[in-house]
Design a protein around this nucleic acid. Structure first.
Lengths: 195, 195
DNA sequence: CCTACCGATCGGTAGG
DNA sequence: CCTACCGATCGGTAGG
């Protein structure tokens, strides 16, 4: 009973932690890690300047947590979307569309933060690399399958990297109120890849 | 005569300015604009902390100058390489290879700094956007030409943006000592685009 | 989670 | 281009 009581009281604090993570991710994407102050993040969730350090040891820790939880949430979304999709072409098209969603929809555009891992120490960078590898491993199987049955435009080694470039760079130019929908962009990217 | 004399004495100072620009570009690419201090830049060229401000009004001014001069140097390289190349497919292949060179060879990988223009005021951002548009305009003609004769995989609107994504994102993963040469990467990117 | 604070660092300047 | 310096800001902490 006392445990249940403790948990019930702990819940709001957990939500505050998530609030901080979401605000941090958004600000890091907008202004970059180095240009975002912990005071910016605190203010974004209505806290005072010292309070984020009650939830996180350091600014770097906030970045690490935001990136890893974002990558894992995106990974879960990806897996859920392709579960039971047997045709590899349909699967790849779905993955591309979901990845654009992970990048550009909602408020935690975590994949765009990958470059900021240069601000972390080697141990944290390794954790992020592992989460990122898990995300990319989901793609390699589908690409291999398509290459094996000759439906990929090219199975040459850099294709997966060039594909991620097409997708990830979109954060630089995509505007939600622009002329192109995410469906259209995802279709265009798929057409470039598939034969 | 006195004018000639003055010019002769001014020359070393002009070189120091260029030294600063090159060091700044390299550091901004490596660590990001906000994480690079003007002291880092001064030290990289053997100056004391206050001295860069003899050559540039502000840190932002240094970024603006590095980006614009880098973009223009890359543009000149591009134009020189495709002068007199009439076949649009060969021309596009050349442009892709030269662009990879602008990004990844030498020591001023300026195109990778585009995202840092968010750290500048609106006026400076507009100057950089103009230089960047000049660089991209050189591509649109060739893409249109290829689309007109049916040799482009797709002429849909986002293709130029996706192409630049493939190319520019390479700064995130390319390593000079890795298994892929720039020629191989350029070929792979060309194959994805051309039919 | 707030108040009050600290040491370090940063962009930039004056004066030579 | 250097010396010497300033005001502002920043990440982080103690103590409640």
């Amino acid at each position: 009973m006392s445990v249940g009581h403790r948990r019930a009281r702990a819940a709001p604090e957990i939500n505050r932690r998530d609030d901080l993570l979401r605000a941090a991710a958004r600000l890091f994407v907008e202004k970059g890690f180095a240009a975002t102050t912990t005071r910016d993040i605190a203010q974004a969730v209505g806290m005072r300047s010292g309070s984020p350090f009650y939830h996180f040891r350091s600014k770097q820790d906030l970045l690490k947590a935001a990136m890893i939880e974002g990558l894992e949430a995106g990974h879960r979304r990806l897996q859920a979307a392709i579960a039971g999709v047997d045709d590899p072409e349909r699967r790849l098209r779905l993955m591309i569309r979901i990845h654009f969603g992970n990048l550009l929809e909602g408020d935690c555009h975590t994949p765009m933060l990958i470059h900021e891992s240069r601000s972390l120490d080697a141990a944290a960078r390794a954790e992020i690399a592992a989460a990122s590898d898990r995300y990319q491993a989901a793609w390699q199987g589908t690409l291999d399958e398509l290459a094996a049955c000759g439906r990929l435009r090219s199975a040459a080694s850099p294709v997966r990297l060039l594909l991620f470039g097409m997708l990830n760079w979109s954060g630089q130019w995509y505007r939600p109120d622009g002329p192109l929908s995410l469906d259209e962009i995802a279709d265009a990217a798929s057409e470039l890849l598939l034969r």
